[in-house]
Write a protein that binds this DNA or RNA. Structure first.
Lengths: 134, 134
DNA sequence: CCGGATCCACTGGGATACTG
DNA sequence: CAGTATCCCAGTGGATCCGG
């Protein structure tokens, strides 16, 4: 049988097999980095409910700066998660939309988010205990 | 029905509901941050196959510095993902082990890692196309 | 409307040396 | 063996102003 631990072992193996000359980074790590970026997941999740235009996203994600919005969208596009379509209207409008790859990522992301939501109480308790001991 | 998109909507809602006075960070974001940290996931996955002592971990994760190993383990412990047990032997030994919470995290993490492994080809293709266009 | 360009503060994380 | 303590640098990400 292939349980979670086998995945773990395989992951560790692949990681350590990755070249350390740092020209290439372990593929999985690149994905984890994306997840760790401040706005990537929020944008992917926002786009999950349908395509948006640039300023629509600004409104729906109020705290993001336009620089970070542009930059994150570019990154997601480069990753193949988001497609960018320019409509030659006046004024111009640009539509951002999840690609199939992007939509497929919602599933594992959803698992992680669900886990986080369900277990945050325990995390908070652990942290409080840790800080009290220290 | 509750598909992935409902999770997405709920996540976005919670995110935006989080206070912006930055004293408290959205719980899910804290977990995503952890995932994004350079060594957290690798250590969790390494510990998935059983408890380890400090220097065992150093050997199994050759590229980590002792500073980052200590720091990451502390963080994971504070998060409630890892337990630390000191045995009063001579020389002293310390055992790190996944808590139940830590073990439960392997599952969603496994989903994400599997997705990354399976889809990296497509990501690489997209990136190559993007860079060629630019 | 959709960005690009610039400046800057903060911090994650590596190298190195030392200790109970 | 299992850490601490310092120094230091590169990169992330925010604010602001400018352009097509």
């Amino acid at each position: 049988m292939f349980g979670p631990n086998d995945q773990a072992a395989e992951f560790v193996e692949r990681w350590n097999a990755a070249p350390t000359d740092t020209t290439e980074v372990c593929p999985v790590r690149q994905v984890l980095d994306k997840v760790g970026e401040k706005w990537s997941v929020l944008l992917v999740m926002t786009l999950a409910s349908g395509p948006r235009r640039f300023n629509e996203l600004r409104r729906q994600v109020p705290d993001i700066s336009q620089k970070m919005l542009t930059q994150t969208l570019r990154d997601l596009q480069r990753f193949g998660l988001v497609s960018r379509t320019v409509f030659d209207t006046n004024p111009p409008s640009v539509e951002y939309r999840l690609t199939e790859l992007g939509q497929s990522m919602i599933v594992p992301l959803g698992h992680l988010i669900r886990w986080a939501s369900e277990n945050y109480g325990e995390i908070a308790t652990a942290r409080a205990a840790f800080d009290r001991a220290a």
